[in-house]
């Protein structure tokens, strides 16, 4: 998949497998910047139930690197500084099934 460049002020988010089924999309552009810890809330607002059905079982990458999802209760934590930037490529990675 080669995603088109996101519009100005946006990042791309890619949905695979169950994430794609749940959203009905392979990808979309969302407004940036967005703190990583707010990503799941943002998606839950748009796709009710996605957290429990998909996100809780999935990993997240930013620009092809895995990132730890900060827990939302820990808003002041040192680990919560990651911010998704304009032009970034974020992906929801459900459990894989190659082979």
């Amino acid at each position: 998949m080669s995603a088109p460049k996101p519009p100005k002020g946006h990042f791309n988010i890619l949905y695979f497998a169950t994430a794609s089924s749940h959203t009905g999309k392979d990808m979309e552009a969302l407004p940036a910047p967005l703190p990583l810890r707010k990503l799941f809330d943002t998606l839950e607002e748009r796709y009710q139930g996605i957290r429990e059905a998909v996100l809780d079982h999935s990993l997240v990458t930013i620009n092809l690197g895995y990132v730890d999802m900060p827990s939302s209760e820990d808003e002041d934590g040192e680990d919560n500084v990651t911010v998704i930037q304009e032009g970034d490529e974020v992906a929801i990675i459900p459990p894989v099934s190659s082979g």
């Binding site: 695979f16 497998a17 990675i93 459900p94 894989v96 099934s97 190659s98 082979g99």
Partner: peptide, 9 residues
Amino acid sequence: CKAKVEVWK
């Protein structure tokens, strides 16, 4: 591969 590669069936 089956544990990690980002391919979905």
